[in-house]
Design a protein around this nucleic acid. Sequence first.
DNA 1: CGTTGGAATGTGCACGGTCACAATTGCGAC
DNA 2: GTCGCAATTGTGACCGTGCACATTCCAACG
Lengths: 350, 350
Amino acid sequence: MTVHIPTGVMVSENPPTGRAPSIRDVARLAGVSHQTVSRVLNAHPSIRESTKLRVQQVIDDLQYRPNSAARALVKGQSRTIGVLSAMSAEYGPASSIAAIQDAAREAGYFVNTANISRGEPSSIQAAVDHLMDQSVEGIVVIAPQVRVIEAIEKLSIAVPYVTLQSTGVADKHALSVDQIAGARLATRHLIDLGHRNIYHLAGPQDWIEAEARMRGFLEEMGANDVPTTAPILGDWTAGFGYHAGRELLRVRDFTAIFSSNDQMALGLMHAIRDAGLDIPRDVSIVGFDDIPEAAHFWPPLTTVRQDFAELGRRCIALLLANITGGANEASSSPLIPELVVRSSTAPPAW
Amino acid sequence: MTVHIPTGVMVSENPPTGRAPSIRDVARLAGVSHQTVSRVLNAHPSIRESTKLRVQQVIDDLQYRPNSAARALVKGQSRTIGVLSAMSAEYGPASSIAAIQDAAREAGYFVNTANISRGEPSSIQAAVDHLMDQSVEGIVVIAPQVRVIEAIEKLSIAVPYVTLQSTGVADKHALSVDQIAGARLATRHLIDLGHRNIYHLAGPQDWIEAEARMRGFLEEMGANDVPTTAPILGDWTAGFGYHAGRELLRVRDFTAIFSSNDQMALGLMHAIRDAGLDIPRDVSIVGFDDIPEAAHFWPPLTTVRQDFAELGRRCIALLLANITGGANEASSSPLIPELVVRSSTAPPAW
DNA sequence: CGTTGGAATGTGCACGGTCACAATTGCGAC
DNA sequence: GTCGCAATTGTGACCGTGCACATTCCAACG
């Protein structure tokens, strides 16, 4: 169907079906050049108000949407950032990812996530390749396993990257969250209560944050001249916590355990109760993360709260600062975890 | 720096820095046309083996990567699918998302996730817009709230979409996971144990899966002629479970509760224990989802297991079938949840 | 030895935006 | 009335890849 327009131009009212309207379709209907439309879209200052309105009207009528592929092609940038993540089904990573997505969207960026199923190098490689294929402008590494970082650095990646959950040292790659301080808080709490025989159930050693929490534990123990035993290396799961608990109970030379995360703490408590012992009377337990369920564990878990959402937001701020070369105010104030005391800790009975 | 090549062509050894090598750079160095390079990349059948090898060599040398924006532009498809998700920090959604990403990557697709922070319509609109801006080829809706579905349909979206966690009816939009059957399984278990006074703690009513589980509960109760009380409407969180538990205990006219998910079940158990009652002696509890922690709750929770990962995989299979117009074998065999009996259920004491 | 036809390769344009630059318009000052 | 300058708008090329079509190559056949 065609209609006659007063200007004397024959115009097809419905543009050829099957193809989304382009900037030129809009231009034709608005009676301007395609460049003017582009200017309206990009809020160019020198556009007459009346022109702008007219173009905007056509845009709305046609439900025109800029083609991001075309824009990416000509500008040479994809407006996409990549997220490299392991164990993304866990509460911590998942919360951060959600916050990252929100923050990125806010800034007009798209987020593309690639999971690292296992620690296998090939899997890491595949994930990084996937992101690079999309020509992401930056990468967020959520599961900062040492080997992942190494793989990325070895790739001499052309794009900036940021790792979440670091050791508290703020450089241009790492977010300054003081995991060590958090671990010291937890350890100090146990020491203050009078515990002297404290075990530490650590996370996988190739995780930077696991290593940081362990270091915090050892530092605080050392600072208070409390002798330590070697930490037990776990895998973050409640199942492992349970098995570790059963093993530990065969010795039973401790009055408290500091677990590297809440899930393992849950498993630990399960094993301890199975053995007929009481928490916190016989054993005190401290976790890490403060997942939403921790307040309803039995007993409610004393733990260290991390603000994963804030973490995600800062992460994007830092990355975007790297990308655009702008200043980075985000890392200026380090994020300090907070001790949440509930009912799983008490002075030792002996 | 330039070098003289035997063929008599002057070639710049290092292509102009600052720009990634293009298909033409490869072509020039390999002494073929850009189209031949394109054919190698797309595994065109009519390419001489020797030519293919030569081109491949240059590609490796240059570390050439096809520009996905250019490809998307000319082919008119982005090879990207969008995920619309709410509460993506929860175990269920997060697991599915991870599986979706893996499956999509396997199929050569990118995944772009947009979160719906609250139920606000504007938030939904913004999320959908964001995905459409990226010109996704399909959408997976993870948080199947009624209003989200409505919003999407109202948009008369030009792309196919699939919703996760449906009522068991397999149509072209919904994955056939029988939530109703799962809920009946849980309810039946309680009835079989001898319970006759059973409450149901449901999820938010605008969630399709919450509604399906509630329906399953009511159906099974009706089928066994057990009188029912009105379900309590919750918000999926452990905190709500706790408060609901405290309220319910003021009446205490029940011997069992079927909770719509494991988190609320946890809060429920917390409240019940706080009141000095024993689980399962005084009250039996059944959850839904079987999150990894459920096995280590106190007591270990009887629940209904959902295979979220398989769900994610099938979801992509269905969506890709919709996109390519191919056959869909995925939905042929509906996914049936499985009852996992642990220690939170027992025959009623009275 | 010319013809034929399929395999292998090349040519030019299109995709939908943006950029650099050119052209036109508008308006106050001379 | 016209000149100058800034504001506004238009023109054409280009980004990297795939498609349609044209061309070349080469072996088999009559």
